[in-house]
Every structure is written in structure tokens, then in C-alpha cells.
Amino acid sequence: MDVVDMTASELLRWAAERNSATGRVPECTLCQEAFSLECSDDVSCERWCLALADKIDAELAQVHAADLRDLAAIWAVTNGWPGFREGETFGAWLERCAYKKPVDDCNEPVQFGDEIELHYRSGGMDKGRLQEVTVNNWSVWLLSFTGVDHAREYRYNREFDTIKRPAPEVLGADGKPIVTCETVYPTYGSHIGEPCKVLAVLDQDNVRVSVPGGGNERFDGCYLAHTPPDTQERIDADVLKLMTGYWDCSDFKCAECPSKVDGATPSERYNSGNGFIGCREAMIFDLLRRQRELDKRTGGAE
């Protein structure tokens, strides 16, 4: 057997027997450090190794012989839990002293204070922060939790209803939340700019999407946009557009500008002045911005 595969007792026995067979005189560090004893002529390291191996074997045998109730009784005393009553089984003690928490759809216990969603078999849903659980019978529990503007009890049937965790808010490359079933466009990888359907939103760096051609891939949310990313072809085509075509405002008055972002018109965003001239300059600034972002993403011009 290889040394690395030996148990502690096997390793100690091997070391002691090997020293005895070869007539080697080992260092006394083991005796002094492990046992706080001083060596003498009649106390050898081999004897202490064998004694230690016997001690380990005895301790393991004791652990194996102990049943779950004995181990739980030791744990209860150590951690301040109620002890076992005379003749009480482990199951009865657990039923008396422990509290069974409801579990979510991943079979993970829900802790007090957790945000949860209670989905009913009828199709309805309530959400809030879990505060208390009252067991009515073996299958029906009452969950008390605080919602947006209320606190009340909800009837929860473990056989039919489901507890779920609220989906985490994951922001895409454009700063908008990514939700399941919507179409997004990767900004890196082999599917740049291709429409992909969101299958699952697990966390910020784990968004599962179906990709063209079959299969699915994992993306960090910051690499998924709600609109197709720019291409050189699209920028080149937009350079040839009139200002009104670029901003898609030919049928609108300036006061009704359709290209506002957070309430700011193109000329206001780029501080390029007012009127036709201001929006024309804003178009140039916007094209330059898009070109810089494309070059940065694709490793183009500095």
C-alpha cells in the first residue's frame, strides 16, 4: 500500500516496524513534542508509535459503536440544547426540540428574514419577507411575512404550493434588468449581435441563454444587451444619413424629440447648442462615440 493511502494508525505502525527492522535510531522529537515526555533507554519512539496507533484504533471503535442518539446527546450538551429524556429516541427528541423549516423549490430551508415568493397551485402568488411559520397539520402551514405594505398570514400547502426565491436583479450591458424569456444580444463571444433567448437568470455572472444553432451558453449579464450591438457596417451606413434620419425625428417638432435619453435631447446630451446645427453636431459626436466603443470592443483603432 502506498504511504499516502494509509490511515494514521497504519502509517504509525509502518514507521515503527520499519525502524525496528532496519535497526535505525529515530529522533526523539516525537516523544518530546507529541507526548510531552522525556526519552529514556527503555522508552523508544517505536513503542510510542505503536501505543498511539492503538489509541487511535480504540477511539475509532468507540465512535463507530456509538449510535446517533449518543452522539446527538453529546452535541446537545455542547451547544446548549435540551438533553434527552429517559428512553427518548433520537427522532422523538428532534421532533420535540428542533423546528422544521419550510423548504424552497431547490429543497433549501427558508430562514427567517428571507425574501420569498409563495406560488399557489391555483396560479396566484404572494411575496414578502418570512417572519414566522405556524404548523396547522402535517401538510398545511401558515406563513407570516411582510410584503410591500402589509403583514399577514398565508396558507401554504406543502403538497401543492411552492416556495421560490425572488429572481435576482441582473443588469445588462445597457443598464436594464435582464428577465427570462426576453431576447438579448451578446456583446462578446462567437454570437455577437445575434438574438438569444434568456432561459434563466441565476446571478450577475450566470445568465443562461439559448444561442442560434441550438444549445445554450452562460454569460455575465454585463455582456448582454437589449438591442443589437453596433457593427462597422451599421456605423458606416448611418454616416450617410441626414441628421433628421439619424435621430429619426423628421416627423416631429423639436419639442417632441423622439431621441431623448433620460429627458435630454441629443444636443443637450452633447452640449452642442440648439436647433438644427446643434443636433447635426450631436450626430457627429454620437458617431464618434459609437466608433470608439466598437473599436474598444473589437480591438480596432486606438
Score class of each variant (00 low, 15 high):
34 A>K: 09
128 G>E: 00
95 E>V: 13
86 E>R: 09
297 R>A: 09
239 V>H: 15
234 R>F: 15
267 S>V: 07
179 V>I: 13
9 S>N: 05
4 V>Q: 08
161 D>Y: 02
280 R>T: 14
3 V>Q: 13
236 D>N: 11
15 A>T: 10
184 V>H: 05
270 Y>L: 14
161 D>A: 05
54 D>Y: 07
148 V>T: 11
62 Q>Y: 05
261 V>D: 06
131 Q>F: 02
4 V>S: 08
96 R>Y: 11
155 R>H: 11
4 V>H: 07
47 R>L: 15
173 A>L: 10
282 A>S: 15
177 P>N: 04
299 G>T: 07
210 S>W: 02
280 R>M: 13
38 E>K: 09
203 D>H: 07
100 K>F: 15
106 C>F: 12
36 S>T: 07
275 G>K: 03
250 S>M: 12
175 G>F: 03
163 I>P: 00
16 A>C: 01
214 G>P: 01
130 L>I: 00
251 D>H: 14
302 E>R: 15
15 A>N: 05
46 E>R: 12
215 G>A: 01
139 S>N: 05
176 K>Q: 08
99 Y>K: 14
108 E>W: 06
35 F>V: 09
117 E>S: 08
207 V>W: 00
276 F>T: 15
77 V>T: 00
89 T>H: 05
14 W>V: 11
293 E>F: 09
45 C>Q: 05
171 L>W: 03
68 L>T: 03
141 W>I: 01
243 M>Y: 12
264 A>W: 15
188 Y>S: 10
275 G>D: 04
17 E>S: 11
119 H>N: 03
124 G>W: 12
9 S>G: 07
112 F>V: 03
40 S>G: 13
252 F>L: 12
227 T>A: 15
188 Y>Q: 12
73 A>M: 05
34 A>Y: 10
113 G>F: 00
226 H>V: 10
300 G>W: 02
39 C>D: 08
285 F>A: 05
48 W>D: 00
159 E>S: 13
